[in-house]
């Protein structure tokens, strides 16, 4: 939760700074952000590679549990493609937004950087903002609605609704509404959704 608020604060501060013309044009136009993005992706990679629990997690996997995040990603992508048709965005744009799987910071950054080639800077920034907001909404909804989702749609529903956040922000509320025994399912689903974001979002940005 703290992280979500901080995210919004930095985004809003940037909006205010841009609106007030505090940042010189030359910095906005430069490709500094591309290089910062490379640094970010390298750090994300180090985080994955050095995870001390990686082997433990892989050993603990019930193969059937792998189906859960894959189905969740597929379901998200199908409906996101439908929404893109409703809203006038291209299908690949909608897939990129849905591919964020709740990982709003990384997905919005990747989209605003890599959609620039096909959409232009303005539309890429707009789609990045949609990715940021929609993935935050998804996290907030899951935090609030988990008990309802678990009761009405079964113990897996809060896990898949949380997407990548099943492993951190939403984990406590998932365990509370679906039961402690859902920990392996939540962890595996969260990790796979998490890892899929830096793979799927750039992929859908390349179309």
């Amino acid at each position: 939760m703290k992280g979500t608020v901080a995210t919004l604060v930095f985004f809003a501060a940037g909006c205010a700074a841009g609106w007030a013309d505090l940042i010189p044009e030359s910095v906005v136009e430069s490709d500094v952000t591309t290089w910062i993005l490379y640094v970010l992706m390298f750090l994300v990679g180090i985080g994955i590679g050095s995870n001390p629990d990686l082997k433990k997690i892989i050993r603990a996997i019930d193969p059937r549990l792998l189906v859960l995040p894959l189905a969740s990603i597929a379901g998200t992508l199908v409906l996101s493609a439908c929404v893109s048709l409703l809203t006038g965005w291209g299908v690949s744009d909608g897939l990129a937004v849905g591919g964020g799987m709740g990982y709003y910071s990384l997905s919005s950054i990747l989209i605003s950087q890599y959609k620039e080639a096909s959409l232009g800077a303005q539309l890429a920034a707009e789609l990045g903002t949609i990715a940021l907001l929609s993935n935050i909404f998804r996290e907030l909804f899951t935090l609030v609605a988990s008990p309802f989702l678990a009761r009405r749609f079964g113990p897996f529903a809060p896990i898949t609704s949380a997407g990548a956040t099943a492993i951190d922000v939403c984990l406590p509320v998932i365990l509370k509404s679906s039961g402690e025994r859902m920990l392996p399912a939540a962890v595996i689903s969260g990790i796979i959704s998490d890892f899929s974001v830096p793979l799927l979002v750039p992929l859908f940005c390349s179309f």
């Binding site: 841009g18 940042i23 910071s105 950054i109 920034a125």
Partner: peptide, 16 residues
């Protein structure tokens, strides 16, 4: 780094 990038995304939105 993510905060820096989100700030940059905000600047892009706000200045347009």
């Amino acid at each position: 780094v993510i905060w820096v990038m989100l700030f940059a995304l905000g600047v892009e939105i706000g200045s347009d």
